[in-house]
Design a protein around this nucleic acid. Sequence first.
DNA 1: AAAAAACCGACTGTAACACTCGGTATTATG
DNA 2: CATAATACCGAGTGTTACAGTCGGTTTTTT
Lengths: 131, 131
Amino acid sequence: MKISKKSQYGLRGLFRLAESDEYLTMKEVAEKEEISPDYLEKIFTELEKAGFVKSKRGPSGGYALAMKPEKINLRMILESLEANLSLVECIDESCKRITDCPVAPTWKRLDQEVKSKLELITVKSIVDKNK
Amino acid sequence: MKISKKSQYGLRGLFRLAESDEYLTMKEVAEKEEISPDYLEKIFTELEKAGFVKSKRGPSGGYALAMKPEKINLRMILESLEANLSLVECIDESCKRITDCPVAPTWKRLDQEVKSKLELITVKSIVDKNK
DNA sequence: AAAAAACCGACTGTAACACTCGGTATTATG
DNA sequence: CATAATACCGAGTGTTACAGTCGGTTTTTT
């Protein structure tokens, strides 16, 4: 039950982009956050596909947020980077026991509660905390 | 970010024990919950070491709860069965960035909130829901 | 004595994680 | 127009936890 490094790195990367008005190169972000640039690049590619980030190639290129930082919350980030966000598979995948499983409703409620908490954490809220 | 099958099976096993006043054999529990008996046994051994369950050998032996079902909550179960319960490692393990990591406080708060939710879910509460 | 249970340790296959690397495409700048 | 800086892409790799399986041992009831 752990949030992957990938998601952790992704959040930290987004935080750095949110701090800056300019495009930042991946290398700059990687250095600030002490993350392997090669790996961070993969993550940014995914974040770009998810629409959180935009890029510019060539010299003076880099990455910048494609959305307002208050619009990007942790649930969205995790849903784009984690293989499967829900706490247990029995929620999305069709477990044939689901109708009579005594714990399924409990898992479902917990899952909702956690996701609600994740929605309250935005990139902006983290930036604001670090002023 | 997923709760392991091990923990899910463990919870379901405890639920079955809580339902019954008698000792249940592992095989009975495994059949009711459609879990591999061999695997469930390993889990029960761990639950016994954690003090949630007691066992009796020989014919008419089996397992029973060693604590009142309202005293066993999901946080306790997960902490005994999951390798490491916290959402991110940076909380327990000593990440050298922790003092200046911009997201560490956020993770820490979220982790606490989730654990509080887990404490509210007891074996008894699940039994009661299924009456 | 025999059978029914729990107990124990070693082993195995799979999949996700956390990268790494080599090369390609694009574009600002001199 | 050439070059260098950047993003882009796909394939490959080592490690670890998960999710079991299996064979045998010990205990205890009947």
